[in-house]
Simulated assay, not measured.
Amino acid sequence: MPSFDSDRPLLMLTTLPSREAAQALAREAVQRHLAACAQIQAVESIYHWQGKVCEDAEWRLLLKTTQGRQAALAALVADLHPYELPALLSVPVQWSEPAFAAWITEAVADPQA
């Protein structure tokens, strides 16, 4: 069983229906120290939903965080996301430049701790 390293960098991805929705979620995540950085990118999505194939313009939100903040960030996304079933994926980082990883850890440190 792999060990849990709460400071290990993690990327979380979701898609939103508008740039404004992506910006609002990104700002909230960064302001609450749940993400060190958020990147927003326009994408075209083709997917199955409720028995049909749909095509929509969406906005991908990439959030840079740590394993230790993953659960709190996921809860925030679930709370604020406008979709009935938001796509939310976490991707473990295999390697990161050590100073960059330390910056992520510092940026998401709980200010109340």
Rank of each mutant, 00 (worst) to 15 (best):
M1V: 06
F4W: 04
D5L: 05
D7C: 06
L13A: 08
T15R: 01
L16V: 00
L16G: 11
S18K: 08
S18P: 03
R19Q: 12
A21D: 09
A22R: 03
A22F: 07
Q23F: 06
Q23N: 02
Q23E: 11
L25Y: 04
Q31H: 12
Q31R: 14
Q31N: 10
Q31T: 14
H33A: 10
A38Q: 00
A38M: 01
Q39R: 00
Q39Y: 04
I40D: 00
Q41D: 10
Q41E: 11
A42L: 05
I46P: 14
Y47P: 04
W49D: 06
Q50Y: 08
Q50E: 05
G51R: 12
G51C: 05
K52E: 14
E58G: 10
W59C: 04
W59T: 05
W59R: 00
R60Q: 07
L61D: 01
L62W: 03
K64F: 01
K64L: 04
T65C: 01
G68W: 00
A71Q: 09
A71N: 07
A72T: 06
L73R: 08
A74K: 13
A74M: 15
V77M: 02
P82E: 06
P82D: 12
Y83T: 03
L85Q: 11
P86I: 14
P86H: 08
L89D: 12
S90R: 05
V91G: 15
V93Q: 05
Q94S: 15
W95P: 10
E97N: 08
E97F: 03
A101G: 13
A101Q: 02
A101C: 12
A102N: 02
I104L: 03
T105F: 05
E106K: 01
Q112L: 14
